[in-house]
Design a protein around this nucleic acid. Structure first.
Length: 285
DNA sequence: CATTACCTGCAA
DNA sequence: TTGCAGGTAATG
């Protein structure tokens, strides 16, 4: 569920709540959630650590702890990080619970158990992130760089934009939204974009991500901020989830041209687009 | 690239 | 009961 804007929303809220706190107790309820050591080793190494701050890289949450240690969390499909009073009953999907020294606790809930947590030093953190592509929102990521990244690419746009080693942070929702905004079909060959199309896609990617952050993430069913609040970005989506569901729910209309939004499968992912504004490329038809 | 695997819940 | 869900790693 969570893509860059949802993770950024989590990180910002953790940054307001965690610095200065200390972990007083740790419980692991699903062993495989801890990715790089045994649950016992994890508990032993995290209890007593102080918290310095919270950052994001791609879709990873990075909590900086004392002595150079980093608590890294990837929410995958259904993970949630919540800060709640330590006395509350634990949600049945809680995989890890970390008590804090102020009567609160940081919990990792994850229905589908795909999420992962690492406890690493700086060198291990670099290794974990070594294959990630550039951050789309940093200043150093320019349209010129994006153009050179696209040049010579053989495949379709959508699978490439989902590839975290190409560009970090986009997922299924924001790729569909960016392609709609840029008026590019998801099956367009990535290497075939001209300069104007490249510039449109570059701006569209940054615009949809920034809008998602402003709206504190997209909540369809799962996403909640650490305070347990839904995001608001679902109200701004132009294509994702708007293709209609069988006979009961008709497709919604493209807000640019009035055409019903269509859904196809690309890269095994549901893909939403406007058949008129985002014309099917000749080489794929 | 595609396919499968990892998991559970929910809607059709 | 089947298929789908916002992610990614491993395998062909």
């Amino acid at each position: 569920m969570p893509e860059l804007p949802e993770v950024e929303t989590v990180v910002r809220e953790l940054q307001r709540r965690l610095p200065g706190r200390r972990f007083t107790r740790a419980q692991v309820f699903w062993e495989r959630t801890i990715a790089n050591m045994s649950p016992a080793a994890f508990v032993e190494r995290i209890v007593g650590r102080s918290i310095e701050g919270s950052d994001r890289r791609a879709k990873y949450v990075v909590v900086r702890l004392g002595e150079g240690l980093r608590l890294v969390v990837h929410l995958r499909m259904s993970g949630r990080l919540l800060v709640e009073p330590a006395g509350e009953p634990l949600n049945p999907y809680t995989r890890v619970a970390l008590d804090l020294d102020d009567g609160m606790r940081l919990v990792f809930n994850d229905t589908r158990k795909f999420g992962r947590i690492w406890l690493v030093d700086q060198a291990e953190l670099d290794h974990l992130f070594v294959r990630l592509g550039p951050e789309p929102l940093v200043e150093e990521f320019t349209p010129q760089q994006f153009g050179s990244m696209l040049r010579g690419k053989k495949g379709a746009l959508k699978p490439l934009l989902l590839d975290q080693s190409f560009l970090a942070g986009l997922g299924n929702i924001y790729v569909d939204e960016a392609l709609w905004l840029a008026q590019l079909h998801p099956l367009r060959l990535a290497g075939s974009l001209d300069e104007a199309e490249t510039a449109r896609l570059y701006s569209a990617i940054r615009d949809v991500l920034n809008l998602g952050i402003e709206n504190r993430g997209t909540t369809f069913a799962m996403f909640l901020t650490p305070a347990g609040e839904p995001g608001q970005n679902q109200e701004t989506l132009k294509v994702y989830g708007r293709a209609g569901k069988g006979r009961t729910q008709p497709a919604q209309l493209c807000e640019r041209c009035g055409t019903p939004i269509a859904k196809i499968f690309v890269a095994q992912r549901g893909t939403h687009y406007c058949p008129v504004c985002q014309p099917t490329p000749a080489e794929e038809a």
